[in-house]
Design a protein around this nucleic acid. Structure first.
Lengths: 261, 261
DNA sequence: CGAACTTTTGATATCACTCAAGGGACGTGG
DNA sequence: CCACGTCCCTTGAGTGATATCAAAAGTTCG
């Protein structure tokens, strides 16, 4: 439904296909953060084997729950979110292929936010023991995951800037620019387009706007020839201008290799 | 100027005063997250010895700089922030006594945000080597610092909810409730009051509002008998109602002990 | 084909912003 | 000690961006 941008994975267990490694978003992501060994890659491949399909709009964990292991997203899109008592929702992060949900939050005894799918997803649920064993025996992976966590945090800070100090059009433009780079980094976007399963309500709950206003902002971006949405796919028609409009500076994503301690 | 809430520290080097440990905000904070040994406390005390005074409104690190070690705040208030090109500032975190600035961000090669003081501060600048040695040899401290980082992240998420989905009055009320609990946890607040060095411009840049509107919101909270500000001190007159107004739920601060893995 | 959801559009309301100016507190230098 | 500048807070008036309410049109899917 929203996975056309990436070759479909063989649903069968673990074919030790040497190229498969290139399509595993987790490996792809960690490889760009540290120099994984073949052994590292193999372990990650094994971990990613046991996937589970989760329909759209389904909670993986709720606020108040005790963390029940760690989720890894391999396909589709999920999010962290909170709800206010009157129902207002704020999305605080998008989780895309290659993202772990709760590597660290699992250390706390109670979730302070929920995690739910936005589109249909392929996820792996990994027991804490497995994770801890992985971290113990694979220092390079540990390091890469640490860096990934830092980037997640930096992204969260940028979202706060987005909601606090940008206009509606700018917020949406910024979000779309960010998603392009993040999805490219895991092989889920072409040079200017990606699968886009988000509804306008989702965008509203991400950017702190009303869905009606999101609609108007999207229309404005379209009319200015900046983007095009059709059939659950987003195409960026003029990345330069879109980035300029949003004052998008990708430094916070720390995309270039060489960040090792 | 803003330290009346806490007994003044002996400015001389390291008097091995056994009670002093109780007034060190770092020890106080970590002690509430894990069970520190006397040895742990001693090391932390040593680390905190070499303090430096930094005037208000001074950058400790700028965006784009390479991280230059780790700062620890022992007195006063600092913040993480970013600026947009036209000058608009967004504050993304308050750093209060006991907070480390960049335990992890130091792993990245370039700062994606700045850190600056809001009031005059007492800080310690700790070289990376020292930190790494500390983490290697004191697992309990390491664990406590890990938890502290998670709480910082949870706080950041709550700030996003604040700016994205709360009204002006609610945002400010929420912020004031949060500060009360955080400052109490390090012994820098009484049951209903604390030193408050922030200007209305600072509050505006924190909450994504204009300073004029912050002024009006503060006035409204005052008129409703919820708070009182005088002489750089904030007193909360009706915590119940203030929390209710903001829909403040302290769960994200994970204040109770027992969160160990 | 119908139900549920999503997008779009119009009309109106409101919250928060901008601009502008006055007043208070504080510090500094004459 | 007073004069002055600066910074911060306060207040008023007018504007603008975004929210809310409502309904129609398009989509998806069983």
């Amino acid at each position: 439904m929203q996975d056309d941008a990436r070759p479909r994975k063989d649903p069968a267990g673990k074919p030790p296909d040497p190229d498969h490694t290139q399509t595993n978003p987790l490996i792809r992501k960690l490889d760009s953060l540290a120099s994984l060994s073949d052994a590292d890659r193999a372990v990650l491949e094994t971990i990613s084997a046991d996937t589970r399909s989760v329909p759209a709009h389904t909670d993986l964990i709720r606020e108040g729950d005790a963390p029940n292991g760690v989720y890894l997203i391999l396909e589709g899109m999920a999010c962290r979110y909170k709800r206010r008592s009157r129902g207002a929702r704020q999305i605080m992060a998008y989780l895309i292929p290659g993202d772990f949900c709760d590597l660290d939050v699992a250390m706390l005894k109670e979730m302070d936010h929920a995690i739910g799918t936005l589109s249909a997803c392929e996820v792996v649920q990994i027991p804490l023991d497995t994770i801890q064993e992985l971290l113990r025996s694979h220092p390079t992976i540990t390091h890469a995951l640490r860096l990934a966590t830092l980037v997640d945090e930096a992204t969260l800070r940028e979202w706060l800037v987005n909601v606090g100090r940008r206009s509606a059009d700018e917020r949406i433009a910024h979000l779309l620019c960010e998603l392009l780079l993040r999805l490219q980094a895991v092989g889920c976007a072409s040079s200017d387009a990606y699968a886009f399963p988000l509804t306008q309500v989702d965008l509203a709950d991400t950017t702190g706007l009303s869905s009606v206003h999101v609609n108007r902002s999207l229309a404005s971006l379209r009319e200015r020839g900046l983007i095009e949405i059709s059939d659950q796919h987003l195409r960026i028609l003029d990345l330069q201008r879109l980035q300029a409009l949003a004052e998008f500076k990708p430094n916070y994503l720390h995309l270039v290799r060489g960040a090792a301690a």
